[in-house]
């Protein structure tokens, strides 16, 4: 039966797409106004303020080692392999000879990536990094819930310190219970995710220069990681990425619909 698209409601077509450039599933997140930040807890995410974001697509899960491998193979980008005193990289270093991720970690999110690495991946995949507001919209929904699954912390719905895995987990280990209603996986826990935004105090204003890609400064990380406990693991947490890389930091990308 044919329908007129101009009167078709949106849910007749799928809200997830497969992005041609890197083959990743992306989920359509309708824009709207939502409460960003909160009025309690860390001063970094205060005060609560209403924020409007436009429609966007965001990767359903953060970029995995297997997906990052396709990128480094295509571009000859340096692999995540470091020997430094300030970060335990042993379980996450890639093997330099075949340029291969660690054994058994194909489905784990890639870590030890810098913000510049994430931007290079996004450029290759013809995407961009989400803004801080878009990330929070995707994780909290328009109702401003504190966790992807609701308003209360439930241990065992995401990879955080309480679960005690002591490292990254494969994508989807906590699905579908820990997913957002749109089906976004691992928004909370597992790895912190790079965003496009510079770390500046709230209220968030996309036009005050904090989305500049050239400016110096620390980029915001969202989503908390396997290291963090329930005090930090919620959708309001912001961390300024004041390091090059870490063993609990990855990323996921976004795109905008064409106008």
């Amino acid at each position: 039966m044919m329908q007129d698209p101009s009167v078709m409601s949106d849910d007749t077509s799928m809200s997830a797409i497969v992005w041609p450039a890197d083959g990743k599933e992306m989920v359509f997140v309708p824009g709207g106004t939502f409460p960003m930040g909160g009025n309690d807890g860390s001063p970094e995410h205060q005060p609560e303020h209403q924020m409007h974001v436009a429609d966007f697509y965001i990767d359903r899960w953060s970029v995995t080692n297997a997906e990052y491998k396709r990128f480094v193979d295509a571009t000859n980008h340096p692999i995540p392999n470091y020997d430094v005193s300030w970060c335990d990289t042993r379980d996450y270093n890639w093997d330099p000879e075949p340029r291969m991720f660690p054994d058994g970690k194909a489905d784990h999110p890639v870590v030890l990536v810098t913000w510049e690495d994430a931007m290079a991946y996004a450029a290759w995949a013809e995407k961009r990094l989400p803004t801080e507001a878009e990330w929070e919209r995707a994780a909290r929904g328009l109702d401003g819930r504190r966790y992807p699954w609701g308003s209360e912390f439930v241990s065992g719905l995401c990879n955080c310190k309480e679960v005690g895995l002591g490292g990254t987990s494969p994508i989807g280990q906590f699905s579908p219970e820990g997913d957002t209603p749109e089906g976004l996986v691992d928004m909370l826990g597992n790895v912190w995710e790079w965003t496009n935004s510079l770390f500046r105090p709230y209220p968030y204003d996309p036009d005050d220069g904090r989305e500049s890609r050239q400016a110096r400064g620390f980029r915001v990380l969202r989503g908390a990681s396997w290291i963090n406990d329930a005090n930090v693991v919620h959708c309001l947490s912001r961390l300024d990425g004041d390091f090059q890389f870490y063993n609990n930091v990855g990323f996921r990308c976004a795109v905008s619909p064409e106008q």
């Binding site: 359509f28 429609d55 571009t75 290079a120 961009r128 996309p206 989305e211 500049s212």
Partner: peptide, 26 residues
């Protein structure tokens, strides 16, 4: 899903990342 219209010019950060050389480091 609620389709919300978004008017106005797209800010710079909504554009895809322009291709940068892969070895970009600070």
């Amino acid at each position: 899903k609620a389709l919300s219209s978004s008017a106005g010019r797209k800010p710079d950060y909504l554009q895809p990342v322009s291709p940068v050389s892969p070895q970009v480091k600070p």
